[in-house]
Design a protein around this nucleic acid. Structure first.
Lengths: 343, 343
DNA sequence: CTGTTAGCGCATTCAG
DNA sequence: CTGAATGCGCTAACAG
């Protein structure tokens, strides 16, 4: 070791020379091409691998991509990488991607449309084989530019559908509805919601579920009890809870549109001297690890993030290997209410 | 939209044809080459860009990489992507990488040496421009294979040093020492530590700091009070705390080698009916968001993760643009004890 | 069963 | 100031 950087990197030609065969043969044994009218003797294989080891040869994926039009690259485009939700998704995606020997690049858009658009270009430049998109702003046309470029795309959530893009999602409305119904069953009548932005699908859908639940039980909705906040802003949950607590008639229960929000709200309530769930019950959404790291533990809607991620990759893989023009598929992942202590 | 996938992607040749110029010119204007004996008329520039827009041209980075030997790719190699620590690091790295128009691939090694070695090969194949490594097992020789391949490397932590690889770290020993000293100052004499694996640098170094602090105050170390656990295993912190609590003479304070461990331990103590910090004080390490999401809030050593990440990328960038053979540099990032409620 | 050869799309000398 | 020609390293016809 300790030598100065950068000697010339060996090429397949070097390997061929050393092994005393042609580059074709090298390529064949390295890619283990045994099909067709190709048969390589054990002896030759051995020699090639020997040369590979000796030279410490690693094929250049740039050259390979150029030739094969496959990059073995997946992209994951998400609004944020900060904990807790998206890293879990990323982990699941990575894990599944490994099975196909795919690397994954994560693009964090900060929820800004311009950055999303920019990334679209990057994706095409890079020639990624597939992309998983979690976005609230991209249009069908944007997606189409990817599809046109031959990139497989699956969309995380119920966002714009494209004839050749798949969706992986959970039934947001129903899930939210179940959560709120649970609250109603517990006897709550005055239920607030810390909702996500109306501009996002998740925000809109979960609020819809909330409203559905109320309506189903004949409880009138009250604008005062709906507080729309940003999903990712620091302290957003506290903001909502604060608003509720300062009402002349505060809610006895709160449905927060994410665990992040819920935990934030919960802590605010606690710090305000209230007991949870006695003074105010709280229910979250996602079931991220934080849900069990607060006391009382958070009652929340469990989303199977792992399964979301792996399913997304599987869909991608199917499209990549073969079915470029499969019709759009919608995969609904199960969810369930996890009752813990906060409600 | 709604067309079926994949039309032939336009190349720089197509752009040239449409603009009525040569590919050379296209390349020049796209890469904004104005130096040397190259001067392109405003008029020509305009025409080229027009053609680019018209055709929706995106240069192929595979071809470009093949030619330029630069991939504009950074890699981040970490033991886990799960929350909370590494996603924060990843976020910081990403953010800084954007300034250089670099994408970043995250490799999660699950702390397994074999996977680390495998990734080394992938890195070389991909021809990443630089890599940030957080590993406990890789040797100087392993690092060298990267350097030889012309890849810039910076190491996260105090791990093996290589003549041409940089380190970004905090003073683990001193930080740990400060934390434990704080406990001693508060009057604690019987202090336990939930330590990381002896096999990891972080584990070893933080334990060293713990021992130093005790020694400095003449407090004898007690094997019983040192509990070595895995950094990432679920419930590792609880395990440690459980062991301490079942001692005939339990510690009155505990120094945990990470927030993750600390929070876990804290919750276990709480759930066991103890009060923190009255019955047992707890202090963590890292200052991740969870530290403020538990009650009592966690007293902990603040690590400037953002700065760690961005510094790492800056070092990489310097090496990539120019100084391939700069001597190894060691960047020490500041830390500080954040006193909250748990100790 | 193995070797020869022709590009993949781009950046870049070197002439004009 | 711009164009023609070369090759980066690899895969895949196509011949032997």
């Amino acid at each position: 070791m300790a030598q100065r950087p950068t000697r010339r990197r060996p090429t397949s030609q070097d390997v061929a020379d050393l092994a005393g065969v042609s580059v074709t043969t090298v390529s064949f044994v390295i890619n283990d091409k045994s099909g067709g009218n190709v048969r390589i003797s054990e002896e030759t294989r051995r020699k090639v691998w020997e040369a590979v080891k000796a030279l410490n040869y690693r094929p250049s994926s740039a050259a390979r991509s150029l030739r094969t039009k496959r990059s073995n690259l997946l992209a994951l485009m998400v609004p944020h990488i900060e904990p807790p939700y998206h890293p879990l998704l990323a982990a699941a995606v990575q894990r599944e991607a490994e099975n196909g020997n795919l690397d994954v690049i994560i693009y964090s858009t900060r929820d800004e449309l311009q950055r999303e658009k920019d990334f679209l270009d990057v994706l095409i430049s890079r020639g990624v084989d597939g992309v998983i998109i979690h976005s609230h702003q991209l249009s069908g046309e944007d997606i189409d530019s990817l599809v046109q470029a031959g990139i497989a795309v699956v969309i995380h959530g119920n966002t714009p559908t494209h004839p050749f893009a798949d969706n992986v999602m959970i039934d947001e409305v129903k899930a939210a509805e179940e959560a709120v119904s649970y609250l109603i069953d517990k006897g709550h009548r005055r239920i607030g919601t810390i909702a996500g932005p109306e501009a996002t699908w998740d925000g809109r859908l979960r609020k819809e579920g909330y409203l559905n639940a109320l309506q189903a039980r004949g409880i009138p909705a009250d604008e005062e009890l709906i507080c729309e906040v940003d999903f990712f802003r620091q302290g957003a949950g506290a903001l909502g809870m604060n608003k509720f607590l300062s009402l002349s008639e505060p809610p006895s229960a709160v449905f927060a549109a994410s665990d992040h929000l819920a935990v934030d709200a919960l802590l605010f309530a606690l710090d305000s001297g209230l007991s949870v769930p006695e003074d105010v019950a709280i229910i979250g959404f996602d079931d991220t690890p934080t849900a069990t790291q607060v006391r009382p533990r958070l009652t929340t809607v469990h989303k199977d993030i792992k399964s979301l991620g792996s399913t997304a990759v599987q869909l991608l893989l199917e499209r990549i290997n073969g079915g470029g023009s499969l019709p759009a598929r919608q995969k609904m992942i199960g969810h369930r209410l996890v009752c813990r202590e906060s409600a």
